[in-house]
Design a protein around this nucleic acid. Structure first.
Lengths: 322, 322
DNA sequence: GGTGAGGCGGACAACGTTGTCACCCGGGAT
DNA sequence: ATCCCGGGTGACAACGTTGTCCGCCTCACC
């Protein structure tokens, strides 16, 4: 900018004025400055501007895994809102590791992001309080913050969706319905178990439930165990998209009624089509980002808690008879 | 930092030294400073540091669509390298719009990203020359830069993969093999068409080729047209993952030998399994990022052009007889 | 006890931008 | 003629950090 100023024969401040479209510059002077800018290929140093202004026009996104279809769709929706607000998006994957998450948040805050959007791992987010008090708002998506912290949160109706899926299988005549879920320390997994359990009522049988971090091997073992019971399950409810796919592979074509939580691409092309409880990751990302920008524009209401509806998509696998 | 200094009763610079682990500070002083830092919840303002240092430790990623499985996997791989180098990743989707891409690059450069990784849209990247000369290296992934610009580039073996796929179908007895590709102005689409054509040799028949931005409707129409020919195709080669899926839907279960470019999740679970030519998006992202960091660490060699191999994954659909 | 070295701490400038305020100058009102 | 006004312009400080350089204090050694 200094160079531009001397090239145009004006003061630094005049260049600044032209760059920022501020009034009070003679059109001829402005033209001279613009010409010098083009000639020198100058572009404003955003770092310095940020230092002065205090706002970075940057939002940090911490998700579990950018490569996961669910989160990448969520991330894209966040990105669209963020770009639309003239900001940029810093994204990072926590890999479901609370320590890494914390480190990423720390890094983002040191970079003075204007706000954070998080799909949290772990249950202790007290370290965020300091940042919140320092004026960096955060919005949680998909999972709520740990106890003792209350901020804007967007969830889907996990329990309701699980009830929906379970009742759907019950309505098609199943009484022995197995549930494969993720580690119950994950909020969504616990809520979905809760919905399944309440829908099952007196039919609930803990031998038909397996909750742990899924691997192909663990899913296969769990299924084998259940299928060798005296009264084996005739239907399966899987607690998230990855589990649904893993279970389908483990079943190796053995017919079994199946309803999964989370929609996934190609669910309609499998034989039979896979019945799912679909949520809306793009909507979740968009709403989370919108909530964040409301905070950034000064809204000072109590934390909002948005619950997005889910819907059952029957495609065949959930309508198989026992 | 000023506050920390006065709280600890030392000078600004001493706090800076402690924060940066520089030598020449008495352990007791350092401890006092650290205590004050904890007490005040201070964290270094990265913007100011950046302003001083000139490096932002930030990398910009411009891809077509963060939500696309191919690109999100690529993005995740880039992210891992970037984080591993102590930097952060700014990501943005161009939506295949050259103007938006250019705007994003401009924004990234104004923010003084240390480097750029791009999956380019459009064919004119001359606007990058200025940034390159200003010392912001760029690496292209999946597609090369437009004419007149030569930078580090990571591609997959598009033509070779198309040859592989076509020969595979030929080897299984097919002579009428259709090709559905994306708009030929897209580099990868053109290369794959080229591979297909050269593998077909005298069997090539332009009536069996459709190249345009795919929509469910256009794919359906193209297939209908080809299937109503006197000598309809007995096999289909689809030019990218999205096309493969769209074509599978349009076929509605009609049996047809099929080989697709790009692997996709669940390809193995369909009936029959979908034979594909698989590339390695994670490897592409990782290598692109590594090339970038080599430039950033001062490497001044001529631009490198890496071509990643592809491999044929037979799963059933490509082995169907005519 | 004087002196030099080395360890430690501090003052100051600079990074590139913008907000504040003051200046200059011409023209119209008094 | 004096004053004032306001459009156009510029000088300067400040944002928070770090590199440079300088000075002080202590300790060991002569």
């Amino acid at each position: 900018m200094k160079d531009v100023a001397s090239a145009a024969g004006v003061a630094l401040k005049t260049v600044s004025r032209v760059v920022n479209g501020e009034p009070g510059v003679h059109p001829a002077t402005a033209e001279r400055v613009r010409e010098a800018i083009d000639r020198l290929g100058y572009s404003r140093n955003e770092s310095a501007r940020v230092l002065r202004a205090g706002r970075t026009s940057t939002v940090g996104l911490v998700i579990e895994d950018l490569a996961d279809p669910f989160y990448s769709v969520l991330g894209r929706a966040v990105e669209d809102v963020v770009i639309g607000e003239g900001c940029l998006l810093l994204s990072a994957s926590s890999s479901e590791d609370p320590a890494r998450e914390r480190e990423l948040v720390r890094t983002f805050c040191a970079r003075r992001v204007d706000g954070l959007i998080m799909v949290p791992a772990g249950h202790d987010h007290s370290y965020l309080r300091q940042e919140l008090e320092a004026g960096t708002p955060a919005v949680f998506a998909d999972r709520p913050p740990g106890p003792g912290l209350d901020v804007d949160t967007v969830l889907c109706d996990n329990a309701g969706g699980a009830v929906l899926a379970t009742r759907h299988l019950l309505a098609h005549g199943h009484r022995r319905i197995a549930f494969l879920g993720d580690d119950p320390s994950i909020f969504t997994a616990a809520r979905r178990l809760h919905g399944y359990r309440s829908a099952m009522g007196h039919l609930y049988d803990e031998r038909l439930v397996a909750m742990r971090t899924p691997t192909p091997g663990s899913v296969r073992a769990d299924l084998e165990r259940m299928l060798s019971l005296d009264r084996p399950p005739t239907a399966l409810f899987t607690g998230n998209g990855r589990l649904t796919v893993t279970a389908l592979r483990a079943l190796e074509g053995r017919p079994m009624a199946l309803t999964g939580f989370d929609d996934f691409e190609l669910a309609d092309l499998l034989t039979p089509g896979v019945t799912v409880v679909a949520q809306d990751p793009a909507g979740m990302g968009r709403i989370a980002a919108e909530l964040l920008f409301r905070r950034l524009s000064g809204e000072d209401a109590p934390p909002r808690h948005v619950t997005l509806p889910v819907r059952l998509v029957p495609r065949g696998s959930g309508e198989l008879p026992p």
